[in-house]
Computed example of a mutant assay.
Amino acid sequence: MLNDNAPIRVLVVEDEQLIAMMTEDMLEEIGCRVVATAHSLGSAVELAQSVEMDLAVLDVNLKGQESYPVADQLREQGVPVIFLTGFGERGIAERFKEVPVLTKPFTQDALREMVMNLKRGK
């Protein structure tokens, strides 16, 4: 699924600038390469169509809009997703129950574990 030798290319979708920057830093510190960051649903949809990535980290709630259209699009492309949310797994739509969820605030270790699980195909 994910190449063992190359850095994992990640799309970050987060409407809160500071959380986006923190997430980018965490990903880079664990050896990933952030290829793009979107702060709105519209830009996330565009980037999902145009950027090559191995993984996407999506905030579920983007200024009142759910990121599920992006998750659907990425699922069709075979790109794994990690959801970020302040509501935990109970706030995730039923059709995405298998998608890993990081509850805000999250740690770098928790993010690393999810990324590595996806890399191993778990």
Rank of each mutant, 00 (worst) to 15 (best):
G78V: 09
V45W: 02
D25F: 12
G31D: 03
Q49H: 10
K63G: 15
P105W: 04
E113C: 00
G64M: 06
A38L: 00
E16F: 15
P100R: 00
P100D: 02
M22N: 10
T37V: 10
L62A: 03
G88Y: 08
A110I: 06
A110N: 08
R112I: 07
A110E: 11
I82H: 08
V45S: 01
L47S: 01
N3I: 08
M53W: 00
V60T: 07
K119T: 00
L27V: 13
R33W: 06
E29R: 15
G42N: 05
G91F: 03
A71W: 01
L11I: 13
T85F: 09
T107F: 05
D4S: 14
V79R: 04
S67G: 07
A20S: 13
D109K: 05
L55T: 02
V81C: 14
V79P: 11
L62S: 02
M114W: 08
G91S: 12
F83M: 06
E113I: 03
Q65R: 08
S43A: 04
G121A: 07
V101H: 11
F83E: 07
A110V: 07
E76Y: 05
E89G: 12
G64F: 00
A93S: 11
K97R: 15
I92F: 09
Q108E: 11
Q73C: 11
L47E: 00
R95C: 10
E29D: 15
F87P: 09
D59L: 04
K97V: 13
Q65T: 04
D4A: 14
P7H: 00
A36F: 06
V60H: 01
V45I: 15
R9T: 14
R95G: 08
L47M: 04
V79G: 08
I8D: 01
V115G: 00
F87Y: 15
D15C: 14
A71F: 01
I82Q: 09
N61W: 08
E14T: 08
N5Y: 12
P105E: 05
R90K: 13
N61V: 10
V57H: 06
D25I: 10
V10N: 07
Q73G: 09
P105F: 04
T85R: 13
L118T: 00
N5R: 11
V13I: 13
L18Q: 12
M116L: 08
H39L: 09
A71E: 03
E28G: 10
E76R: 14
A93D: 10
S43W: 01
I19P: 12
R90I: 14
V101A: 12
A71C: 07
A20Q: 14
L84N: 13
M114K: 12
S50I: 12
E16M: 15
E29T: 15
E14M: 08
Q73A: 11
G31A: 03
G31V: 01
F96R: 13
L41C: 04
K63I: 08
V101Q: 10
A93N: 10
Q73L: 15
D15V: 14
P105C: 07
A44E: 02
E94K: 11
A38Y: 00
C32T: 01
M53P: 03
V12K: 09
G86D: 11
L2C: 01
R75C: 09
M53R: 04
Q77V: 12
S67E: 02
